[in-house]
Design a protein around this nucleic acid. Sequence first.
DNA 1: TATTATATTATGTAGTACATAATTACATAT
DNA 2: ATATGTAATTATGTACTACATAATATAATA
Lengths: 233, 233
Amino acid sequence: MKNNSKRLQPIKTTSLADQVEESLMKYLKSNNFSTGDPLPKETELAAYLGVSRNIVREALSRLRMLGIVESKKRKGMILAEPDLLSGVERVLDPSILSDEAMKNIFELRLVLEVGMGDLLFARLKDEDIKILENIATKEANDTRLASLKVRLSYEIEFHSKLYEMSGNDTLKRFQKMLLPVFNYMMEVEATLDKKPEKGNIDHFDLIETLKNGTPAQFRENMREHLTPHYQRL
Amino acid sequence: MKNNSKRLQPIKTTSLADQVEESLMKYLKSNNFSTGDPLPKETELAAYLGVSRNIVREALSRLRMLGIVESKKRKGMILAEPDLLSGVERVLDPSILSDEAMKNIFELRLVLEVGMGDLLFARLKDEDIKILENIATKEANDTRLASLKVRLSYEIEFHSKLYEMSGNDTLKRFQKMLLPVFNYMMEVEATLDKKPEKGNIDHFDLIETLKNGTPAQFRENMREHLTPHYQRL
DNA sequence: TATTATATTATGTAGTACATAATTACATAT
DNA sequence: ATATGTAATTATGTACTACATAATATAATA
């Protein structure tokens, strides 16, 4: 036997539901369905695919979860506008994700916040700036900043607002899902021996940049603001 | 009736499968399960939840799809390491996503590429630079650059490599899913009347920055490189 | 004509039965 | 005694039937 020959792989035993799911997706994608178009009835699908209605329903259950199809009694099923993030939403939780995955996601957050400068400037509104200033002021006047939890809550409030200001709904929702990860990672960092030094840029500086600076300056200031986290790369 | 009173909302009729799915997720998250831990048998779950085994299986089918649980005959089910992106992967396709969603995702891409500078520098390897140089050289010597398809293929090859170099698996996989969206958006842009002007920074410039520049310079150069797309904000 | 009753239809749920794969225990042979 | 083969067991995988439920269309009635 040659050395570079492939090892015996366990036979990938895809269940019927898996196959049907794949079939359906291929069917939907290739037939140029558009939102609202009716799908064949469950019994028709079952007959056509040569499987029981049960199996078809297991596959459809998945598509329903992702928002790809919707179903109403008597009316049947229609193709729907799928929700891009509903799949991630269910999974993005520290209690069921590996530390490796969490690290990836946390890095992703750093990338996003440094990279979103142009979006922010393109959609900047005075009222949003005011809200940011309120948050930063509240934070500065709070006497409980010794507590990690309190600091974290301001940090989250401020940065969440930035995501919202990006005007990108996907981004905004992503941020919401990120919260548990964010909390988790901050707690992890808090337990480390070597305390991260604080960045030289605070929330007021970021606001000032948004008001009178450029996207490029914002990127660099945000990068500086996030320095404590970047040190863990 | 007051003006700000809420409209009648359609009763959200969550199916049993929906409820069971939620129940199971709550159960898994709250009981500190870890990977490999066995789950109750399907029949036990059905009995405990007071629903038929069918329903339980519809819910489990979803969790299986997301990689949250795995099941083997006779052995039963175990908690597995869920795949963060498997849910998105199925949905991220121009043929079933709305233009609005596509626009969001395309913006996301711009944010990611501008923001990933620090990751790249933190994980820079000589061999990767060489590969980038090969791509850029191949591109420069290609006589077919009049064709949009050819240009696109180089663009994709180059930028894909960057994602890979980020050392972040989630990011890398995300890029792979982005490809259809990328293609789609480029084709859309190609049909527009006002042709976007080319950016002043090409792939060689980006490589040079990676070799002798700083993360900050990379961000600005990448931003400049992507200018044609940013003009559509 | 308006309203009510009835039938119809496709999804939602329940329950039973059996197939299949994986594991254990046991039996047999060299 | 080790190895091999056989049977029993168990939980998931699949199929099938039956009925509930909601939404719609049709017919019947005042």
